[in-house]
Design a protein around this nucleic acid. Structure first.
Lengths: 114, 114
DNA sequence: TGAATATATAAGCAAATAGTTATATGATTA
DNA sequence: TAATCATATAACTATTTGCTTATATATTCA
């Protein structure tokens, strides 16, 4: 029994966003834990504006949501999204990315919020 | 139990191709039956070169395969593809597109091969 | 309050994309 | 064999994309 039957055009828009290595990896990371912008900057070794722009695209169609915590803005995945079942099916097949955040922890650059 | 763990970069490339309404619909159609170029031209009301170019992209990464039958070239999905499990998971959620070919049958423009 | 930090946004640019028209190729048919 | 049909490819173009640098905004901290 399948979770949803999706509109093919909207599904295409979701897949288009996921069809980028950076955003796809971001989504896989966010599927297991929330993460702030500066952590992504470090993980992907990309400029802060570039990371922000990728996150904006994901946020614009509400696949992710932001939450300010002090000076940081944390992003988390929106599991209530109409197309989250589609996203989840894809992310399930991807290799675990938790090592990326573990590395930051080891280096002491993981942002932990009280 | 999941079928595969895929490489995130290759998965991104697949999703990028599927992130186009025309190609995504083509794949959904081809997942249930093979189809020739001129049928796609009619279904999508797009130019023949445009259809050919979409098919070429799908063929280049071997998501589909071609088979000449007389003057027509039929395309079918490649279920042996390393990433077909990923593709299948996505296509499963999409609305059935068989009505599109049924319409051609009704109009008598469906190509049937002996 | 002023400096530092984190993030977002704007503007610009090169590369990629998806369509177009024109033409080439290959099979069928008269 | 010449005309026709189906498809592919090439060349061109407008749009989109993903990055860059520069700057604006919001928060924290001294």
């Amino acid at each position: 029994m399948l979770e949803t039957i999706v509109d093919i055009e909207k599904a295409g828009a979701i897949l288009k966003l996921l069809g980028d290595k950076t955003r796809l990896t971001m989504m896989k990371i966010l599927d297991s834990q929330s993460c702030c912008v500066c952590e992504f900057v470090e993980i992907f070794e990309m400029s802060q504006p570039s990371i922000s722009q990728h996150l904006r695209k994901l946020r614009d169609i509400r696949l992710v949501q932001e939450e300010r915590k002090g000076q940081w803005i944390f992003y988390h995945i929106n599991k209530e999204h109409e197309y989250y079942p589609l996203v989840q099916r894809i992310l399930e097949l991807l290799p675990d990315q938790r090592a990326k955040l573990k590395e930051l922890e080891a280096k002491g650059t993981r942002i932990t919020c009280k």
